[in-house]
Protein backbone atom coordinates (compact mmCIF):
# COMPACT_ATOMS: atom_id res chain seq x y z
CA UNK A 1 0.00 0.00 0.00
CA UNK A 2 2.80 2.39 0.89
CA UNK A 3 4.53 1.75 -2.43
CA UNK A 4 1.26 2.37 -4.24
CA UNK A 5 0.76 5.72 -2.58
CA UNK A 6 4.38 6.60 -3.23
CA UNK A 7 4.34 5.75 -6.93
CA UNK A 8 0.91 7.19 -7.64
CA UNK A 9 1.93 10.88 -7.90
CA UNK A 10 4.85 10.11 -10.26
CA UNK A 11 2.57 8.02 -12.42
CA UNK A 12 -0.02 10.75 -12.49
CA UNK A 13 2.65 13.28 -13.41
CA UNK A 14 3.86 11.19 -16.35
CA UNK A 15 0.26 10.87 -17.55
CA UNK A 16 -0.26 14.58 -17.55
CA UNK A 17 3.14 15.09 -19.18
CA UNK A 18 2.16 12.75 -22.02
CA UNK A 19 -1.11 14.60 -22.38
CA UNK A 20 0.61 17.98 -22.50
CA UNK A 21 3.26 16.85 -24.99
CA UNK A 22 0.56 15.28 -27.17
CA UNK A 23 -1.58 18.40 -27.00
CA UNK A 24 1.42 20.54 -27.97
CA UNK A 25 2.46 18.41 -30.96
CA UNK A 26 -1.05 17.91 -32.30
CA UNK A 27 -1.90 21.51 -31.47
CA UNK A 28 0.91 22.81 -33.69
CA UNK A 29 -0.37 20.80 -36.65
CA UNK A 30 -4.00 21.78 -36.02
CA UNK A 31 -2.97 25.43 -35.77
CA UNK A 32 -1.00 25.22 -39.02
CA UNK A 33 -3.79 23.36 -40.77
CA UNK A 34 -6.45 25.86 -39.67
CA UNK A 35 -4.20 28.80 -40.50
CA UNK A 36 -3.95 27.65 -44.13
CA UNK A 37 -7.70 28.21 -44.47
CA UNK A 38 -7.30 31.96 -43.86
CA UNK A 39 -3.68 32.80 -44.52
CA UNK A 40 -0.65 31.45 -46.34
CA UNK A 41 2.82 33.04 -46.45
CA UNK A 42 3.04 32.48 -50.24
CA UNK A 43 0.97 31.09 -53.09
CA UNK A 44 1.78 27.36 -52.83
CA UNK A 45 1.77 26.91 -56.60
CA UNK A 46 3.72 30.03 -57.62
CA UNK A 47 7.46 30.65 -57.68
CA UNK A 48 8.22 32.62 -54.55
CA UNK A 49 11.98 32.79 -54.86
CA UNK A 50 14.99 31.20 -56.46
CA UNK A 51 15.29 27.44 -56.86
CA UNK A 52 16.48 25.36 -53.92
CA UNK A 53 17.18 28.35 -51.70
CA UNK A 54 18.37 27.60 -48.17
CA UNK A 55 16.43 28.69 -45.08
CA UNK A 56 16.14 32.44 -44.60
CA UNK A 57 13.83 34.88 -42.87
CA UNK A 58 11.82 35.14 -46.10
CA UNK A 59 11.63 31.37 -46.59
CA UNK A 60 11.84 29.62 -43.21
CA UNK A 61 12.49 26.22 -44.75
CA UNK A 62 13.86 27.42 -48.06
CA UNK A 63 12.36 26.70 -51.48
CA UNK A 64 11.93 23.58 -53.60
CA UNK A 65 13.34 22.84 -57.05
CA UNK A 66 10.60 24.93 -58.68
CA UNK A 67 11.22 27.85 -56.34
CA UNK A 68 8.01 27.32 -54.31
CA UNK A 69 8.11 28.15 -50.58
CA UNK A 70 8.59 24.89 -48.61
CA UNK A 71 7.09 26.20 -45.36
CA UNK A 72 3.83 27.05 -47.16
CA UNK A 73 3.67 23.55 -48.56
CA UNK A 74 4.39 22.03 -45.15
CA UNK A 75 1.50 24.02 -43.67
CA UNK A 76 -0.86 22.67 -46.32
CA UNK A 77 0.61 19.24 -45.62
CA UNK A 78 -0.50 19.53 -41.99
CA UNK A 79 -4.05 20.22 -43.10
CA UNK A 80 -4.05 17.29 -45.51
CA UNK A 81 -2.51 14.91 -42.96
CA UNK A 82 -5.15 15.83 -40.36
CA UNK A 83 -7.99 15.37 -42.85
CA UNK A 84 -6.57 12.02 -43.95
CA UNK A 85 -5.93 10.78 -40.41
CA UNK A 86 -9.30 11.80 -39.00
CA UNK A 87 -11.21 10.74 -42.12
CA UNK A 88 -9.56 7.34 -42.49
CA UNK A 89 -9.82 6.50 -38.77
CA UNK A 90 -13.48 7.62 -38.69
CA UNK A 91 -14.36 5.44 -41.68
CA UNK A 92 -12.31 2.53 -40.30
CA UNK A 93 -13.94 2.92 -36.86
CA UNK A 94 -17.54 3.01 -38.11
CA UNK A 95 -17.14 0.03 -40.45
CA UNK A 96 -14.79 -1.89 -38.14
CA UNK A 97 -16.72 -1.49 -34.87
CA UNK A 98 -20.01 -2.39 -36.58
CA UNK A 99 -18.54 -5.51 -38.20
CA UNK A 100 -16.70 -6.51 -35.02
CA UNK A 101 -19.84 -6.23 -32.88
CA UNK A 102 -21.82 -8.18 -35.48
CA UNK A 103 -19.23 -10.96 -35.39
CA UNK A 104 -19.21 -11.00 -31.57
CA UNK A 105 -23.00 -11.45 -31.50
CA UNK A 106 -23.27 -13.70 -34.55
CA UNK A 107 -23.95 -17.42 -34.58
CA UNK A 108 -20.87 -19.61 -34.59
CA UNK A 109 -20.57 -20.21 -38.34
CA UNK A 110 -21.17 -16.57 -39.28
CA UNK A 111 -18.62 -15.51 -36.66
CA UNK A 112 -16.09 -18.01 -38.01
CA UNK A 113 -16.70 -16.81 -41.58
CA UNK A 114 -16.29 -13.15 -40.59
CA UNK A 115 -13.17 -13.88 -38.54
CA UNK A 116 -11.58 -15.79 -41.43
CA UNK A 117 -12.41 -12.97 -43.89
CA UNK A 118 -10.88 -10.41 -41.54
CA UNK A 119 -7.73 -12.51 -41.11
CA UNK A 120 -7.32 -12.70 -44.89
CA UNK A 121 -7.82 -8.93 -45.23
CA UNK A 122 -5.31 -8.25 -42.45
CA UNK A 123 -2.77 -10.53 -44.16
CA UNK A 124 -2.53 -7.90 -46.93
CA UNK A 125 -0.59 -4.78 -45.99
CA UNK A 126 -2.80 -1.72 -45.41
CA UNK A 127 -1.01 0.12 -48.18
CA UNK A 128 -1.62 -2.66 -50.70
CA UNK A 129 -5.38 -2.72 -50.01
CA UNK A 130 -5.47 1.06 -50.21
CA UNK A 131 -3.63 0.95 -53.56
CA UNK A 132 -6.14 -1.61 -54.86
CA UNK A 133 -9.10 0.54 -53.81
CA UNK A 134 -7.53 3.69 -55.32
CA UNK A 135 -6.74 1.81 -58.53
CA UNK A 136 -10.33 0.58 -58.71
CA UNK A 137 -11.78 4.09 -58.39
CA UNK A 138 -11.80 6.28 -61.51
CA UNK A 139 -9.81 9.25 -60.30
CA UNK A 140 -7.06 9.42 -57.73
CA UNK A 141 -7.88 12.24 -55.33
CA UNK A 142 -7.68 12.92 -51.63
CA UNK A 143 -11.08 11.40 -50.90
CA UNK A 144 -10.46 8.17 -52.74
CA UNK A 145 -7.24 7.84 -50.72
CA UNK A 146 -9.09 8.49 -47.43
CA UNK A 147 -11.85 6.00 -48.24
CA UNK A 148 -9.29 3.43 -49.35
CA UNK A 149 -7.29 3.79 -46.13
CA UNK A 150 -10.46 3.72 -44.02
CA UNK A 151 -11.53 0.44 -45.61
CA UNK A 152 -8.05 -1.02 -45.18
CA UNK A 153 -7.96 -0.03 -41.49
CA UNK A 154 -11.49 -1.30 -40.79
CA UNK A 155 -10.36 -4.94 -40.89
CA UNK A 156 -7.95 -4.37 -38.01
CA UNK A 157 -10.58 -2.46 -36.02
CA UNK A 158 -13.16 -5.18 -36.67
CA UNK A 159 -10.91 -7.96 -35.45
CA UNK A 160 -9.97 -6.05 -32.30
CA UNK A 161 -13.59 -5.06 -31.58
CA UNK A 162 -14.72 -8.67 -32.00
CA UNK A 163 -12.19 -10.00 -29.49
CA UNK A 164 -12.75 -7.20 -26.97
CA UNK A 165 -16.55 -7.47 -27.20
CA UNK A 166 -16.42 -11.23 -26.73
CA UNK A 167 -14.34 -10.77 -23.61
CA UNK A 168 -16.86 -8.30 -22.18
CA UNK A 169 -19.86 -10.43 -23.20
CA UNK A 170 -18.95 -13.24 -20.79
CA UNK A 171 -18.75 -10.90 -17.80
CA UNK A 172 -21.43 -11.27 -15.13
CA UNK A 173 -22.37 -7.61 -15.44
CA UNK A 174 -23.70 -8.32 -18.94
CA UNK A 175 -25.91 -11.13 -17.60
CA UNK A 176 -26.86 -8.82 -14.73
CA UNK A 177 -27.88 -6.17 -17.27
CA UNK A 178 -30.04 -8.74 -19.07
CA UNK A 179 -31.73 -9.86 -15.86
CA UNK A 180 -32.19 -6.17 -15.05
CA UNK A 181 -34.32 -5.98 -18.20
CA UNK A 182 -31.90 -4.08 -20.46
CA UNK A 183 -32.23 -4.70 -24.20
CA UNK A 184 -29.21 -5.73 -26.30
CA UNK A 185 -28.81 -2.33 -28.05
CA UNK A 186 -28.82 -0.71 -24.62
CA UNK A 187 -26.25 -3.20 -23.31
CA UNK A 188 -23.99 -2.44 -26.28
CA UNK A 189 -24.27 1.31 -25.73
CA UNK A 190 -24.01 1.34 -21.93
CA UNK A 191 -21.77 -1.61 -21.08
CA UNK A 192 -19.89 -2.97 -24.09
CA UNK A 193 -18.72 0.18 -25.91
CA UNK A 194 -17.53 2.03 -22.78
CA UNK A 195 -15.59 -1.05 -21.67
CA UNK A 196 -13.86 -1.70 -24.99
CA UNK A 197 -13.32 1.99 -25.73
CA UNK A 198 -10.00 2.49 -23.85
CA UNK A 199 -8.27 -0.23 -25.88
CA UNK A 200 -9.96 0.85 -29.12
CA UNK A 201 -8.99 4.49 -28.68
CA UNK A 202 -5.31 3.62 -28.29
CA UNK A 203 -5.64 1.57 -31.46
CA UNK A 204 -7.30 4.48 -33.27
CA UNK A 205 -4.37 6.71 -32.34
CA UNK A 206 -1.92 4.15 -33.74
CA UNK A 207 -4.01 3.93 -36.89
CA UNK A 208 -4.12 7.69 -37.25
CA UNK A 209 -0.33 7.64 -37.53
CA UNK A 210 -0.53 4.64 -39.84
CA UNK A 211 -3.06 6.41 -42.10
CA UNK A 212 -1.01 9.60 -42.33
CA UNK A 213 2.13 7.65 -43.20
CA UNK A 214 0.18 5.46 -45.67
CA UNK A 215 -1.24 8.56 -47.37
CA UNK A 216 2.28 9.94 -47.64
CA UNK A 217 3.29 6.65 -49.24
CA UNK A 218 0.34 6.79 -51.65
CA UNK A 219 1.24 10.36 -52.55
CA UNK A 220 4.88 9.36 -52.89
CA UNK A 221 3.76 6.74 -55.40
CA UNK A 222 1.55 9.28 -57.16
CA UNK A 223 -1.70 7.63 -55.96
CA UNK A 224 -2.64 10.21 -53.34
CA UNK A 225 -3.84 13.78 -53.54
CA UNK A 226 -2.90 15.19 -56.98
CA UNK A 227 -1.08 18.53 -57.29
CA UNK A 228 -1.47 21.26 -56.19
CA UNK A 229 -2.36 19.45 -52.93
CA UNK A 230 0.98 19.56 -51.17
CA UNK A 231 0.83 16.40 -49.10
CA UNK A 232 3.93 15.52 -47.08
CA UNK A 233 4.38 12.38 -49.16
CA UNK A 234 4.49 14.40 -52.38
CA UNK A 235 6.95 16.89 -50.90
CA UNK A 236 9.14 13.92 -49.95
CA UNK A 237 8.86 12.47 -53.43
CA UNK A 238 9.71 15.75 -55.12
CA UNK A 239 12.70 16.26 -52.82
CA UNK A 240 14.08 12.87 -53.77
CA UNK A 241 16.28 14.11 -56.59
CA UNK A 242 17.73 16.99 -54.63
CA UNK A 243 18.17 15.33 -51.25
CA UNK A 244 21.96 15.97 -51.19
CA UNK A 245 21.82 19.61 -52.25
CA UNK A 246 18.68 20.60 -50.31
CA UNK A 247 18.11 18.00 -47.56
CA UNK A 248 15.43 20.09 -45.79
CA UNK A 249 12.92 19.07 -48.46
CA UNK A 250 13.17 15.48 -47.21
CA UNK A 251 13.86 16.16 -43.52
CA UNK A 252 10.95 18.57 -42.91
CA UNK A 253 8.11 16.26 -44.07
CA UNK A 254 9.78 13.35 -42.26
CA UNK A 255 9.86 15.23 -38.96
CA UNK A 256 6.33 16.49 -39.51
CA UNK A 257 5.03 12.95 -40.11
CA UNK A 258 6.73 11.52 -37.04
CA UNK A 259 5.77 14.43 -34.78
CA UNK A 260 2.09 14.17 -35.73
CA UNK A 261 2.03 10.38 -35.30
CA UNK A 262 3.75 10.56 -31.89
CA UNK A 263 1.61 13.52 -30.84
CA UNK A 264 -1.65 11.70 -31.57
CA UNK A 265 -0.46 8.63 -29.66
CA UNK A 266 0.59 10.65 -26.61
CA UNK A 267 -2.68 12.56 -26.73
CA UNK A 268 -4.75 9.36 -26.91
CA UNK A 269 -2.83 7.74 -24.05
CA UNK A 270 -3.12 10.86 -21.91
CA UNK A 271 -6.83 11.28 -22.62
CA UNK A 272 -7.55 7.64 -21.84
CA UNK A 273 -5.75 7.85 -18.51
CA UNK A 274 -7.54 11.07 -17.60
CA UNK A 275 -11.01 9.85 -18.55
CA UNK A 276 -10.84 6.22 -17.39
CA UNK A 277 -12.46 6.01 -13.91
CA UNK A 278 -10.69 2.72 -13.08
CA UNK A 279 -7.30 4.44 -13.44
CA UNK A 280 -8.18 7.16 -11.00
CA UNK A 281 -6.95 6.88 -7.44
CA UNK A 282 -9.27 5.42 -4.79
Amino acid sequence: MSTATMTAPTEKKSHSLALKAGLLLVGIHIFMGLLTLVWLPYDPTAMAGGRLEGPSLLHLLGTDRLGRDLFTQMMIGSRIALIVGIGAVAIGAVIGVTLGLLAAFASKWLDDALAATLDILIAFPTLLIAMLVVAASDTANLWSAIIALGIALSAIVARLTRILAKRVLVMDYITAARTSGSSWPKIVAIHILPNIWPTLSVNFALQFGLAVIAEASLSYLGLGAPPPNASWGRILQEAQGTVYTAPLGAIAPGIALVSLAIGVNLLADGLRDTIDPTRRAR
Binding site: S180, S182, N195
Partner: peptide
Protein backbone atom coordinates in the same frame (compact mmCIF):
# COMPACT_ATOMS: atom_id res chain seq x y z
CA UNK B 1 -15.58 -8.31 -9.25
CA UNK B 2 -17.20 -9.23 -12.55
CA UNK B 3 -20.85 -8.54 -11.78
CA UNK B 4 -20.44 -4.75 -11.50
CA UNK B 5 -19.56 -2.75 -14.62
CA UNK B 6 -16.21 -1.08 -13.77
CA UNK B 7 -17.06 2.04 -15.79
CA UNK B 8 -20.41 2.83 -14.18
CA UNK B 9 -21.02 4.69 -10.97
CA UNK B 10 -22.72 2.83 -8.11
CA UNK B 11 -25.81 5.00 -8.61
CA UNK B 12 -25.99 4.04 -12.28
CA UNK B 13 -25.38 0.33 -11.57
CA UNK B 14 -28.12 0.06 -8.95
CA UNK B 15 -30.55 2.19 -10.96
CA UNK B 16 -30.22 0.02 -14.07
CA UNK B 17 -33.22 -2.24 -13.27
CA UNK B 18 -35.28 0.86 -12.42
CA UNK B 19 -34.41 2.47 -15.77
CA UNK B 20 -34.67 -0.64 -17.92
CA UNK B 21 -37.90 -1.89 -16.37
Amino acid sequence: YSSLDPRQTIQSIIAEPLRSL
